[in-house]
Write a protein that binds this DNA or RNA. Structure first.
Length: 483
RNA sequence: GGCCCGUUGGUCAAGUGGUUAAGACACCGCCCUUUCACGGCGAUAACAGGGGUUCGACUCCCCUACGGGUCACCA
């Protein structure tokens, strides 16, 4: 065995990529790439009832999108294929039979009815439901007879109820459980496909996986998996169980609320880099004070020791902030490229300098979907109340604003070449001449031109963007409204 | 309910027996400013509770509370 780390991401194709799943994939990727190892994608589709059309493509797309590039997988091949469990069907059966021979499993012919009754009876007695070993004592002949008779069967794990099993988890440490509480779960279903309980062991071993990174929900069944490894005499991989991502204390991120999947956040306007960056830090700490990381930096800093044990609550506010950081870091060109479609969607007028709007927006949005709300005043001046002209700090009110606007109007009309610089100097000349504070002139202009309490940019910016005619029309409207 | 796991400010979190218990987001205040935003500065805010162990506990042990996970022919 080479010392190379091999990790795998093994989602079942449900049609969307849960954010917690994405994080698990990311951690597996970071761990293995930190060490120059291989990252494997395996599709766990052994539940035919859950099959969703196109779901595998969602997985491929998301991983490609986020930069989690797998070295082996159904789409890229590799030496350990096939990488789709339904295509490995025969293999599981073979190993299940071998496990029976080794004494680690047995045939079971119990039907659903008996199982349900058993469970019911146990529950009624207040004991934890568990298979009672009814078929464990069947002789070889009896088994063969039933199989020949076509009675459906499963293969169950055989567990000696005596003793304890201890396993080691890289983040939780040693965990010991009583074998008596371990249920003898179905390994091979009557349809011939394995359950997760079996498939993960077989595949992880066959694919030479060295580190198993998965959700915390597998923590309590891990001892059972180890028993299987032991029956086969196989090496047990290192386990890394990560705690879930929560919406708030007590609630997991849910599909229902539309904030559980990677796609949901993309649709809300978040950048993929920001999502990856944020999710990386949700439940893992690099130790230092850096918070913005490229994928390469994440790879460089990643360590299992920084993964926390307790569940982490997803804070969209922080994601939003981080997204803003990414946006502000973009070059003007890149920003324009991304923002322009949104701007064009929000602004229908064609006589507007889109680039100027773009520049104004760059430091003012946290996600591109914020753009529309910022530009509502451009196409049409909204109705507004004259009280908007009152601003305590600017020392303005409707009365002096009227005077200001009256003074502003001829000045603006006199600006020949309508550029921001020219408007600016013309207005500041007026300010100087009138011997007033900037705000006395500029605040009323901003209100008249936008009709809003907050805008992306001040009066001069907005005037320049709106154009001479429109600006003057709006100033006149202001004068009229104030008179 | 049984079993397993966890618990540092509202949130993400650093911290591994001796610290003024970091930092970030959010919130609040101030500055900058042509509003807002950006940026800068600052403030408020935490070791779940109780017992031990120890010269000394956020750090180790026990109990309680709370939270999470699991108890399928789902993964």
């Amino acid at each position: 065995m080479s010392g190379k780390i091999r990790t795998r991401f093994a989602p079942s194709p449900t049609g969307y990529m849960h954010i917690g799943n994405l994080r698990t994939a990311l951690y597996a990727y970071l761990l293995t790439k930190h060490d120059g190892g291989d990252f494997i994608l395996r599709i766990e589709d052994t539940d035919q009832e859950r099959y969703v059309d196109g779901a595998v493509d969602v997985i491929y797309k998301t991983m490609k999108d986020t930069g989690l590039i797998h070295d082996e997988g159904p789409d890229v091949g590799g030496d350990y294929g096939p990488y789709i469990q339904s295509e490995r069907r025969g293999l599981y059966k073979e190993y299940a039979e071998k496990l029976v021979e080794l004494g680690g499993a047995y045939y079971c012919f119990c039907d659903k009815e008996r199982l349900d009754k058993l469970k019911e009876a146990q529950t009624a007695k207040g004991i934890t439901p568990k298979y009672d070993g009814y078929c464990k004592g069947l002789s070889k002949e009896e088994i063969q007879e039933k199989i020949d008779a076509g009675i459906p069967y499963v293969i169950r794990q055989k567990i000696d109820p005596h003793g304890k099993t201890t396993f080691h988890d890289e983040i939780f440490g040693d965990i010991t459980v009583d074998n008596a509480i371990l249920d003898e779960n179905v390994l091979l279903k009557s349809d011939g496909l394995p359950t997760y309980n079996f498939a993960n062991v077989i595949d992880d071993h066959l694919m030479n996986i060295t580190h198993v990174i998965r959700g915390n929900e597998y923590l309590s069944s891990t001892p059972k998996y180890n028993l299987i490894y032991e029956s086969f005499g196989w090496d047990i991989p290192k386990y890394i169980h990560v705690s879930p991502v929560m919406k708030d204390s007590g609630k997991k991120l849910s599909k229902r609320d539309g904030d559980a999947s990677y796609e949901d956040f993309i649709n809300k306007g978040y950048l993929k880099e920001a999502i990856v960056n944020y999710v990386a830090l949700l439940g893992w700490s690099p130790g230092g004070e850096q918070e913005i990381f490229t994928m390469d930096e994440l790879i460089e800093h990643f360590s299992v020791s920084g993964i926390s044990k307790s569940p982490a609550i997803f804070d969209e506010k922080k994601l939003s902030w981080m997204n803003g950081e990414y946006i502000r870091k973009m070059s003007e060109e890149d920003f324009a490229k991304e923002a322009m479609p949104y701007i064009k969607e929000a602004v229908k007028r064609t006589d507007i300098d889109m680039n100027a709007i773009c520049a104004l927006l760059h430091a003012r949005i946290e996600k591109f979907t914020d753009i529309a709300d910022q530009l509502t005043f451009i196409d049409e001046l909204p109705e507004y109340d004259n009280e908007l002209y009152t601003h305590k700090k600017m020392k303005t009110n409707p009365e002096n604003s009227l005077e200001s606007l009256k003074a502003i109007l001829p000045v603006l009309e006199g600006v020949e070449d309508w550029t921001m610089e020219n408007i600016h100097s013309a207005l500041f000349a007026l300010i100087e001449k009138m011997e007033v504070k900037n705000g006395i002139i500029l605040w009323p202009l901003r209100v008249a031109v936008s009709g809003l309490p907050f805008t992306p940019g001040g009066g001069v910016d907005l005037a320049a963007i709106l154009g001479k005619d429109e600006t003057i029309a709006r100033v006149k409207k202001g004068i009229e409204q104030l008179s």
